[in-house]
Amino acid sequence: MTRGPLFHEQTARQRIAAVVDRGSFDELLPPPERLTSPYLAQLGIPVSFDDGVVIGRARIGGKKVYLAAQVGQFVGGAVGEIHGAKLTGLFKAAARDRVPCVLIVESGGVRLHEGSAGEIAIAETMRAIFECRALKVPTIAVIGTDIGAYGGIGILSTCCDFRVMTEHGRLGISGPIVIEKWMGKKAYDSSNRALVWKTSGGKTKYLLGDAEALVHDDAGAVREAIGKLLAKSSPVTLKNVKARQKDLEKRLKRFGKTGDPDDVWKGMGVRDVARASLASGPEFAAMAKAGRR
């Protein structure tokens, strides 16, 4: 069996090409427009033609989508003024045209070099995401890389209807190094990869119900998961937010006292933690499901 690069190894443009119907991607504000960051230029830091996010429209399984992919290699995929405005515009276009919007996330949050402009852009994009949701236009965040979804982009990802994760993906707000500095190495050793992934990785997020799908580290699997969610939405209704409130209260009550992710895994139906740690995303999901029966 031959296989292409893993999803987490691909660049943003490769991910897009591999996830959408062949040749269907039509980039908006493409590189020849040269919309590059004046902040970085002033600071003597290299700029990029897409400012770290590739946006456009495409088809997935024949269905129209708007699509964005963040470029993790470029300043950590962090959101500056242009990057953020591209995202806001894309979600607004999705709402206007009633076309689902997919964000392939790879970002540590706000681009510090651009100060508060990136922070406001994330807030504006959140508003645009909820515009989509009010119209039952599906919004999907795909989180499948080590850089993952952190800071404001971690919060933004949770504003979407759905999250598709791989076992490589991480979702959170404060990164492990920040927490280690704050709490001390005893409380959180950021070099302990197993602990870091059990804290913020796709498996734990899926178990808790914060990701709707946990799939192989492969663009084909991501594409399939997106395809299944394109016809669904998770509207913001009183019934839904009340159910979510209950669920989050229960989670906090049940696990709030423990600092050990293994307790969460066991509590959520994972019987053999050691084996589950080594399992692929889908295997893990199946194990948890079997354990809950």
Binding site: T11, R13, P32, Q73, F74
Partner: peptide, 16 residues
């Protein structure tokens, strides 16, 4: 009309 290769990142470049 155009083509892009590479990514701007440490030890890397983009060519348009």
């Amino acid at each position: 009309p155009w083509a892009l290769a590479g990514v701007v990142g440490s030890g890397n470049l983009e060519v348009l």
